[in-house]
Amino acid sequence: MKKSLLAIGFIAILVACGTAKNSTAKVEAMPSQSDVDRVASKFPGYTLEELNDGKKLFEANCALCHRLKKPTSEPESEWKTIVPRMVVKVNKKLGSTVVDASGEEKILRYLITMGSVPK
């Protein structure tokens, strides 16, 4: 009986560690120049470097509070509402402006770009 309870407790700890809210899991899709080219009319002058910066900011900051959503999980209109609210929350949580207006725009453009990947 004690061994069973210990085994169950150990498994529960492993599961809890694997599902922590501040998971540092990475988003699957790696941005490429073809992604930048696909949204060139929407974001003139947009570069692969900016797209990758947005991905890094998204992964580093959004995972502080919750699991990362896939960019395809929300339509563009929702990301435009979600991202500004979340930037306020992360800056408040960290006690400073970690994500400024430029960073917010990079995150938003990253999500919109990668969320528009053809299926």
Rank of each mutant, 00 (worst) to 15 (best):
V90A: 08
S96W: 04
N61M: 02
L51R: 01
Y46K: 07
D53P: 02
K106P: 08
A16E: 07
N91G: 05
G54R: 04
A12F: 04
P31G: 10
E74C: 01
A40S: 15
E50V: 00
V87Q: 07
S116Y: 05
S96C: 03
N22P: 01
P71E: 00
C65A: 13
E50W: 01
K89C: 07
T19K: 08
H66R: 12
C65T: 08
M30Q: 13
E28R: 15
I112M: 05
F43V: 02
P75E: 02
V90I: 14
P84H: 09
V98S: 12
S116L: 09
F58T: 00
L64Y: 12
L6G: 01
R67S: 09
K69M: 01
L68D: 01
P31F: 08
F43T: 01
T24K: 15
K69D: 00
D53V: 03
K3A: 15
E49H: 03
L48W: 12
M1C: 13
K55L: 01
G18L: 10
A12Y: 02
V83W: 00
V88S: 10
C17T: 08
I11E: 04
K3W: 14
M30F: 06
M86Y: 07
E78Y: 10
L108K: 05
C17Y: 14
E78Q: 12
F58I: 02
G115Y: 03
A60L: 13
Q33K: 13
G18Q: 10
F58E: 03
D100Q: 09
S102Y: 03
A63G: 15
D53R: 13
A16N: 11
V99R: 05
M114S: 09
L94S: 10
G9E: 13
M86P: 01
